[in-house]
């Protein structure tokens, strides 16, 4: 295998990783602070992609479409929180799983009703089509590079938000000791709504940005949802830092594994079935990683202190 190919796959893994991080950041906060298992997080991602596609065909400008998708996902997230999830905070995880499972069914079908079962194409913003030369001999799609940059910027912003603002202080306190934040006299339900809205907007952003790369279709949020859960469980629930590291880890391992594992096994064993075994193993890799992490560290890599 060539170094260039490895570098490109590493960049692809990075792009996938930061996209996972946009999803995981919101999910891990909602989970860490409100103790809410939100399976519908993937639906917000899907709706983000649909909003972007719809707004693009409406305005004719993909960048504007993506920009509009973010507030739309935010508003949708706030509505979902106000109407259903708010009553679930005090319930056990089982109730939350079922209720948000119901939300997934609803949103997948809603997408089908509104936009049909077929995948909707969406164009890459004009100024980001084509390739860019990163180093001589290594060219990479501009849009994917843009996603990486945006993802890292968001990570930086979240870092500043969490470590340097009052809201961030409350979020950190909430993740390690929920009761204490209430005792501080903070308006908990407002904090919850804010955090949930933030998570929804990030999920919408993730969906909107990958919409030009993937097919926008009903159910597109489900696989990504499961991966996001894998990420936050590996990272340690409630930890942004853990989510960031685990996102990149999962993104890289999954992408690089899928790209090279079949070929590696084929070279090693020289058999026909090595290819399929390799493909299967590659898709199982991150689940194996997660099981291994939980086996040795049952609360993930970076569990918030004091819980």
């Amino acid at each position: 295998m060539s170094t260039t190919l490895l570098l490109i796959q590493t960049l692809n893994g990075l792009q996938f990783g930061v996209m996972l991080f946009l999803m995981a950041a919101g999910l891990t906060l909602v989970f860490g602070i409100m103790n809410l298992v939100n399976l519908a997080h993937g639906s917000l991602y899907m709706m983000g992609a649909y909003f972007a596609a719809a707004a693009t065909s409406w305005t004719g400008n993909p960048l504007l479409g993506i920009a509009l998708a973010i507030p739309a996902a935010l508003i949708l997230g706030l509505l979902v929180e106000l109407i259903t999830l708010r009553t679930l905070y005090q319930r056990d995880h089982l109730d939350q799983v079922l209720c948000t499972f119901g939300l997934i069914l609803f949103f997948n079908e809603l997408a089908r009703v509104l936009w049909g079962s077929a995948a909707i194409p969406m164009a890459i913003p004009e100024s980001f089509t084509g390739f860019v030369t990163i180093i001589p001999g290594l060219i990479y799609p501009k849009w994917r590079l843009a996603i990486i940059v945006v993802g890292l910027l968001v990570a930086l912003l979240l870092y500043v938000l969490i470590t340097h603002t009052r809201l961030g202080m409350l979020i950190r306190a909430g993740a390690s000791n929920r009761a204490m934040v209430g005792a501080l006299g903070v308006n908990i339900s407002l904090l919850f709504t804010l955090v949930f809205g933030l998570g929804a907007a990030l999920a919408g952003l993730a969906g909107a940005m990958v919409a030009p790369l993937l097919s926008v279709e009903p159910g597109m949020g489900d696989p990504i949802l499961i991966l996001t859960f894998v990420v936050i469980v590996i990272g340690g629930i409630g930890s942004i830092r853990g989510a960031f590291i685990a996102s990149l880890l999962v993104g890289l391992i999954d992408t690089v594994g899928r790209a090279f594992l079949p070929a590696l096994l084929r070279e090693a064993f020289q058999t026909q079935s090595a290819n399929t075994v390799g493909a299967a193993l590659a898709s199982m890799l991150i689940y194996i990683l997660m099981a291994a992490v939980l086996f040795f560290r049952p609360r993930g890599l970076f569990p918030p202190k004091g819980r």
């Binding site: 989970f31 298992v37 499961i226 469980v233 493909a279 299967a280």
Partner: peptide
């Protein structure tokens, strides 16, 4: 708790991909 929910899900996903292969 939630870790049990997620790890059982992970194993089921592994089985899924195993059968696909």
């Amino acid at each position: 708790g939630i870790f049990f929910i997620m790890i059982t899900l992970a194993f089921a996903q592994m089985t899924y991909f195993f059968f696909v292969s």
